[in-house]
Simulated assay, not measured.
Amino acid sequence: MTDAAAPEAAANPAAWGAVLSMALCVAMLIASEFMPVSLLTPMAEGLRATEGQTGQAISISGLFAVVASMLVTTVAGTLNRKWVLVGMTALMLVSLVLVAAAPSFAVLMIGRALLGVCIGGFWALATAVIMRLVPEGDVPKALALMYGGQAIAAAFAAPIGSYLGGLFAWREVFWALTPIVAANLVWHVVALPSLPARQRQDFRAMFGLLRRPHFLTGLIASMLSWGSAFTMFTYLRPFLERVTDVDVTMLSVLLLVLGCAGFVGTWASGRYLKGDIAPFLKLPSLLMGGCTVGLLFLGGSVVAVGLLLALWGAMNTAMSVIFMTWMSRNADDAPETAGSLMVAAVQTSILLGAVVGGWLLDGLSVQATFIGSVVLAGAALMLIGDGRRLLKPATSA
Rank of each mutant, 00 (worst) to 15 (best):
G137V: 05
G137Y: 02
G137L: 04
D138P: 00
V139D: 04
V139S: 02
P140G: 11
P140Y: 06
K141W: 10
K141T: 14
K141A: 13
A142I: 09
A142D: 13
L143T: 09
L143P: 04
A144P: 06
A144L: 08
A144K: 01
A144E: 08
M146V: 13
M146P: 04
Y147C: 02
Y147D: 12
G148P: 04
G148H: 05
G149W: 02
G149L: 04
G149K: 07
A151T: 03
A151H: 07
A151N: 05
I152H: 02
I152G: 12
A153M: 09
A153S: 14
A154G: 09
F156W: 06
P159C: 11
P159W: 01
P159Y: 01
I160M: 14
I160K: 02
I160T: 13
G161V: 07
G161M: 05
G161D: 04
S162D: 03
Y163M: 13
L164Q: 07
G165T: 06
G165L: 09
G165K: 05
G166M: 04
F168G: 03
F168R: 12
F168M: 15
A169M: 04
A169V: 03
A169L: 02
A169F: 00
W170T: 02
W170S: 01
R171P: 01
R171I: 00
E172W: 06
E172C: 01
E172V: 10
V173N: 05
V173P: 11
F174S: 00
F174T: 01
F174Q: 00
W175T: 05
W175L: 15
A176G: 14
A176R: 10
L177C: 06
L177W: 13
T178R: 04
I180Y: 04
I180H: 00
V181S: 05
V181F: 08
V181H: 07
V181N: 02
V181W: 10
A182W: 03
A182C: 01
A182S: 00
A183G: 08
A183N: 02
N184H: 07
N184E: 07
L185I: 07
V186L: 15
W187H: 06
V189E: 01
V190F: 12
A191E: 06
L192D: 06
P193T: 08
S194P: 04
L195F: 00
P196Q: 10
R198L: 15
Q199F: 12
Q199M: 11
R200Q: 15
Q201W: 05
Q201E: 12
D202Q: 10
D202T: 10
D202C: 08
F203H: 08
F203E: 05
R204N: 13
A205D: 11
M206R: 14
F207S: 15
F207T: 14
G208E: 11
G208T: 10
L209K: 04
R211Q: 13
R211W: 07
R211I: 01
R211N: 12
R212G: 02
R212P: 04
P213R: 09
H214G: 05
H214A: 08
L216M: 13
L216I: 03
L216K: 14
L216R: 14
L219G: 11
L219K: 12
A221T: 11
M223H: 05
M223K: 07
L224Y: 08
